[in-house]
Design a protein around this nucleic acid. Structure first.
Lengths: 339, 339
DNA sequence: CTGAAAGCGCTAACAG
DNA sequence: CTGTTAGCGCTTTCAG
């Protein structure tokens, strides 16, 4: 028994021919006699020969690996994105290497280093919340590795992006709240250095403006997780003039707010309406189910991976960056009043 | 500007020394003069030298990559597992390659082929529901690649496993139902070729037996997804003697049953109690929240990855397979009656 | 039609 | 203290 896996050399030796002949026979090169081809292919099958991807990578300076950096895997939207990425990658013959930043800038940089070392052919990134400096991403590009950002993108860096239509989504959500009779609409938002958060807030403001509803700035607060919502929602409810609606920047924040509101004995949507962002399972099964914006994580993953594969195939780093927008759509459920 | 990334040769040429000296200087080899070391390290930093992991892999016949095959990524339990795996891998200096089988046997075999080609150092697998033949896994092992199965393991193949304590969990769940006064307990189960499903069903039967509660076999049905629960739960409810409790093999099935029960105008837990398996977000936020078994996906991932890393480090394929069991614990919420 | 040789980037034995 | 050489597995000229 040989140690390790079968190599082209093993086959060559067994058949008394050269390695190069085996190599050619395996790729059906026209120069090779069909007799040797058959012999080689038979033995290769018999011995379960598998081309060594590592050797191929070194030879061709191409690994056929795509790297993905994601804030956290345990998250319906992100896992959907990964699923989409894996799907496209598989079809295009790429393998997918996963890294999570855990929302840490330091970890994200480590991940980029690993990606550089691994010589991946391209990278997909959704940035950590902490990230404000982008030089590590620039280094990837300087080394000829194309990057496509998704969801958590940055405007400073001119790069390919795949984002959901945060502005339009937020606008639609808030407009829906206004049209269903809400007047004091709070916005639980995320840190404004994230484009996504900016756009969702812009959508909120624009909708309020359009419908001439005054914005009470004390109703626009930073609050972007389930736990934070548990802490901060009570303050909103205890205000002299509490809000009659909440537009939350993401699903778990909406769920957190909902749970507090129920504990306060208030009725949703009669006393307070709620809209979230991201159509996860939580929104569907919570009670009342949450009106929310479907974010199509799978599609984001598919689009981003497609774009990246194209960039890799082009092989030219002087491209004009584009931004693809995946439409969101408002799913009206039970947490908002009927119009 | 050089094309591609900086190599050891580039540095050697620039400094007028040999590649091996550079190599040694970079790894702080005692033979090298501190003068050259400094010069080399400075230039390496200045030029952002990154060791080429591909070349290292070829050289050492070790990729420092762990492969993971998972039925589907978009699933709270599995994404938790991946998160745990990534965590350990990162600490131990391994990168993680992700493949999803989409519950397809064919796809799973493709994934194994890709893993073999990639020469990964080890593999973590949770099998697809379709898989009944294990020769592709055997091939991995025959090639010296250690495998650790988790959650969806098989008993035919003597291999390392990390599983949750399905039997004890199911037993505890059903005992809880019985003690809270339920008499006709239905079990929504998964295909029995999966060890996990077998053990959960055994736990159910054992608890019934212990408490001398008769098992009505028409209440034990194959039903293991949200959609299937939507279809099959009505049949249960329409029986002349409908069940007063449901023990579902997983979370989404429980959620599906719950939603049907609510539509039927029945009260949970007063009319029917429900227990699920897997503590996902769904169980927490559904209304009523679901009594369930915490499955500790993260811990499964951590344990499985740790075990795999150990196996890789040992470098000896003649080990005695072990099975690690991660305890489950019953989280009593609102979908079951107080005892 | 087939083989020998060089090289992808790096390391380690061997030789100074 | 440093350089030369060979080789990890594979492909691809260049020769024959």
């Amino acid at each position: 028994m040989r140690s390790g896996q079968v190599t082209i050399k093993d086959i060559a030796k067994e058949l008394g021919i050269s390695a190069s002949t085996v190599s050619r026979a395996l790729k059906d090169h026209p120069d090779i006699s069909s007799k040797t081809k058959i012999a080689v292919n038979e033995l290769a099958k018999k011995w379960h020969y598998k081309p060594n991807a590592v050797a191929l990578s070194l030879r061709h300076s191409k690994t056929n690996v795509i790297g993905v950096i994601i804030p956290e895997i345990v998250h319906h939207f992100f896992s959907s994105v990964i699923s989409g990425i894996e799907e496209i990658a598989h079809k295009a013959g790429y393998n997918v290497m996963i890294f999570q930043s855990n929302e840490s800038y330091q970890r994200e940089m480590d991940n980029v280093q690993a990606l550089l070392s691994s010589r991946v052919d391209g990278v997909l990134v959704s940035m950590s919340k902490e990230t404000k400096d982008y030089s590590h991403f620039r280094e990837l590009r300087d080394n000829g590795i194309p990057i496509v950002f998704f969801d958590r993108v940055c405007n400073d860096l001119s790069s390919d992006n795949v984002i959901v239509d945060d502005f339009a989504g937020a606008f639609a959500a808030v407009e829906h709240l206004i049209e269903s009779g809400c007047k004091r609409i709070a916005h639980l938002s995320a840190p404004q250095h994230m484009l996504l958060a900016q756009n969702r807030q812009k959508g909120y403001r624009q909708a309020m403006l359009k419908h001439k509803v005054a914005i009470d700035e004390s109703l626009v607060i930073k609050c972007d997780s389930f736990d934070e919502a548990i802490i901060k929602t009570p303050d909103l409810l205890n205000m002299p003039e509490p809000p009659d609606a909440i537009f939350a920047v993401n699903e778990m924040t909406a769920a957190g707010a909902l749970s507090v509101i129920k504990k306060f004995g208030l009725k949703v949507p009669d006393d307070i309406s709620i809209v979230g962002f991201t159509d996860g399972i939580v929104s569907r099964v919570s009670d009342p189910s949450l009106t929310t914006l479907e974010q199509h994580g799978l599609e984001v993953g598919l689009k981003a991976a497609e774009l990246l594969v194209d960039r890799i195939t082009e092989g030219n780093m002087d491209y004009e960056p584009i931004t693809k927008v995946v439409k969101t759509n408002l799913i009206v459920r039970e947490s908002t009043r009927r119009i």
